[in-house]
Simulated scan of single mutants.
Amino acid sequence: MVRKQDPDRNSKNKDTGKVKEIDKTTTSTGSSKVEKPTEDVDTGKADQLEEDPFEPLVEQLESLRSLLIKSAVTFVLWFLIVFATVRWWFPVVSMGADMVVFGPFEVIRFYIRTSAAMSLGLSIPFICWFLWQYVSSGMIEKKNPQLLKGSMGFMFGLFLVGIAFGYFVVHPLSYFFLIQMGERNFDVLVTADEYMSFLLITTIPFGLIFQLPLIVLFLNHIEVLDSTLMKKSRKFAYFGLLVLTAIIAPPDFFTHIITLLPMIGLYEFSIILVRRKEKRADKKKEPEA
């Protein structure tokens, strides 16, 4: 017997086949729709990386602008303080020396110039601190910020010690030595402007020179300098300090010795600080090993 095909059943099969095909197309299109956003996200990230090649440079420029602004504000504040209190510090600065001025305009010019010079000297520790923050932001690890945190007081203290050494030791010896040398053959007349220039030359450089231990610690921290290298190059360092002393101090042997001895002491003190720092670092590495 031959079975007859049911037309309704064939139509149902065709309908189910069409439904299956539609499901396949929808699933395939749905998967493509789902995959497209991921591709867009990846391409978006790539575009962002390609669009910002100068982002580090922009950040550096912003940090540099912040450094300049903070330095300028510090200088202006010190200038206003010094200029407003000029009658208080002037007798201390003059140290009883006989000075003259030529005309009223020289008075105001002297006060402005002297206030600016003293403000710059007082601003140097803060400017060095801002500069150190700018430079060391990419050099000093965030896990070891003790050197950066404790350096401000150490820096300012060394600067004050250097200024005091120049003011109480180098300046009187140099000034009176040159005055006595001039009085042998000339009638010496010292203007206020010249006296203040000489005072700044014999004080501010020592405030900077006394930053040597801090500079050495920083160079050691970034692994540029160590105690062994400093010991080996001791002779060359002494010679450099001797040349620097000859530039700063007046040309007499006694003042040279007085100026050179603390510089040599600073160098040896820097070696001791670096050596102690290296020993601490070695002790920390032993438990890890």
Rank of each mutant, 00 (worst) to 15 (best):
L225A: 07
L173Y: 05
L57Q: 06
S174R: 01
L189H: 07
T16L: 15
D187P: 01
L67V: 10
Y134E: 02
I222N: 04
Q146R: 13
T29M: 08
D42S: 12
A116N: 02
F130I: 06
M230D: 08
D98H: 10
P91Y: 11
V216R: 02
A164F: 15
R9S: 12
S233H: 15
P91C: 10
I272N: 02
S11K: 11
D42Y: 07
P213T: 14
I209F: 10
G182K: 14
V73R: 04
L158G: 08
W132I: 04
E141G: 13
V19T: 05
S270Q: 03
N13L: 12
R9H: 10
K235F: 07
V34F: 08
A46S: 10
F159H: 13
F206M: 03
A237S: 12
E21R: 11
T29Y: 13
P145G: 03
F176S: 09
G30L: 08
A237M: 15
F126L: 14
I69F: 12
E55P: 00
F218L: 10
I222M: 08
I81V: 15
F159I: 09
L160D: 00
I264N: 02
E183A: 04
Y238F: 13
E268R: 03
V2K: 14
L120F: 15
E194N: 13
T25Y: 08
V19G: 02
P251Y: 03
L68Y: 08
V170E: 08
V190N: 10
S174A: 15
T16P: 00
F75K: 04
I271M: 14
V76C: 05
I140L: 11
P125F: 07
G103F: 06
V135A: 02
L158M: 15
K149I: 15
V135Y: 03
F79I: 03
T203S: 09
I124S: 04
D252G: 07
D40E: 12
Y134Q: 04
T16A: 06
F126T: 01
K231Q: 11
S115I: 04
L229A: 09
F176M: 04
W89A: 04
M139T: 11
K142R: 14
Y195N: 05
L260H: 05
K45M: 09
L241F: 15
N220I: 06
H221W: 03
L219G: 05
K14E: 15
G96V: 05
H256G: 05
L242E: 00
V58Y: 01
T85W: 08
P250A: 03
F236H: 13
L244P: 00
T114V: 04
Q60F: 07
T38A: 13
F159Q: 08
E39M: 03
F218P: 01
R3K: 07
E50Y: 13
L68R: 07
Y134M: 05
F154I: 14
S32M: 14
L199S: 15
Y175P: 02
K36Y: 11
E55I: 01
I112Q: 09
T259A: 15
W89H: 11
L229V: 10
T16Q: 09
D226S: 13
